[in-house]
Write a protein that binds this DNA or RNA. Sequence first.
DNA 1: GGTAATTTGTTCGTATGTATC
DNA 2: TGATACATACGAACAAATTAC
Lengths: 244, 244
Amino acid sequence: MTKQVKIDRGTGVSVWRQISEWLRAEIASGAFVAGERLPTETDIAERFSVNRHTVRRAIAALTADGILRADQGRGTFVASTPINYPIRKRTRFSEIISSQDRTPSGRTIGSGQDEADALLALRLDVPPGTQLLRIETLRVVDGAPVLVATSWFEAERFRDAVGVYEATHSFTEVLKSGGVHDYERKESRISAELVEPQDALHLGIASGQPVLVVESVNVDQDGRPVQYTSTRMVAERMQLVIES
Amino acid sequence: MTKQVKIDRGTGVSVWRQISEWLRAEIASGAFVAGERLPTETDIAERFSVNRHTVRRAIAALTADGILRADQGRGTFVASTPINYPIRKRTRFSEIISSQDRTPSGRTIGSGQDEADALLALRLDVPPGTQLLRIETLRVVDGAPVLVATSWFEAERFRDAVGVYEATHSFTEVLKSGGVHDYERKESRISAELVEPQDALHLGIASGQPVLVVESVNVDQDGRPVQYTSTRMVAERMQLVIES
DNA sequence: GGTAATTTGTTCGTATGTATC
DNA sequence: TGATACATACGAACAAATTAC
């Protein structure tokens, strides 16, 4: 149900600009959603009875504005504006997402008990082999999965971590259940990898796509590590922001 | 030219641990470089006249320590120890690298003049179309390329940016040439992508490999943007650290 | 794995409209 | 009015990248 649009020549507004404004309006109205492929340059050119170069000029203008993204051989796509994810001492996923007029949600995708390997032992400052509880969650923004996170807690201190998280969906409550009433993020380590097959399924992306990997440690009021989390984010939909 | 090593039994140090320490030393000495595949478990077992299970025990210990990485169906590899790259207000590549007992170097791989597109205009707070000078550099650590960076400066203010950089290899000097005697990093934006073909050549990695993309803005003493930089880092060799 | 089809990217050339001196 | 410069628009052919079969 696309509105019929005529190209008016000799109006003082160039043809490419009229097409550019039409495209901009279509995208704004939701006729083309983020990530969707536009009709081919040839199709648009035929639709308005103009030369393909004229369409390319219109697309180039929107590409420069970051509204479109053209991939040779694949097509032209509505650029998905990445979610800004600030890294601070206290970051709450839902607050960050809501502040950008998006709708957050999430669900638990797994849990269990592990022994601390060398890395976990180092980060949580416990002896290797210590029993740890693991909680895996999937976070969704505007209906699209954006990250999977795996958190570990010392089993002895946070005996019912899994139960508390299931009931409240809040890591703050899990930490409270172990007597931690205040906590903050100590450090974050950021890297990137190709997505693991299992994560790819949860995130709904193809294998071979990159993910941002953020490893973070929460410490209690005394500076002792209480939670270690490994987060894998869909790189295309996420941009980490550090305000130094 | 591997040093001959004997296994001593009954010394209070288990055989698997002796093999494990030998491997650790070989890797530290550079006999096996990061990414290299180890000899098969059978080969190592024969070399020391021990059972293959003993070798597996040694490898498992190093894997737990993150020194080796076993890929099902491919083999066991020396894990590339990532370079820790802290993001702070003042980050100097050479200082960061040197502090980790590594040897930094770099060279200019390109320069030129561009008009500011929408993104550059936004980040540098100039009108779109403003003339900008571009400097592209390649940074190398211990002989291996780790990142390529593209920096833009306002052409009018930093007329001889390219010349100054060529002569001094210092962005501090470039900024001085435009009257900026103090500057700091305002914000950093981190994402990940698959490497661009041209970057892949410079970085010496295969296409399809992920890169960490860091966009950063330097501001002068009055808080005005003076330098915008896009850095693409080999994800496998880099880990960004944010101490919040 | 190889081939053909699809789609964007690049480079020629030609013609026309518009603003300025 | 004429000369000039620049942006706009059309046409054709080919290159490069991706996808489908």
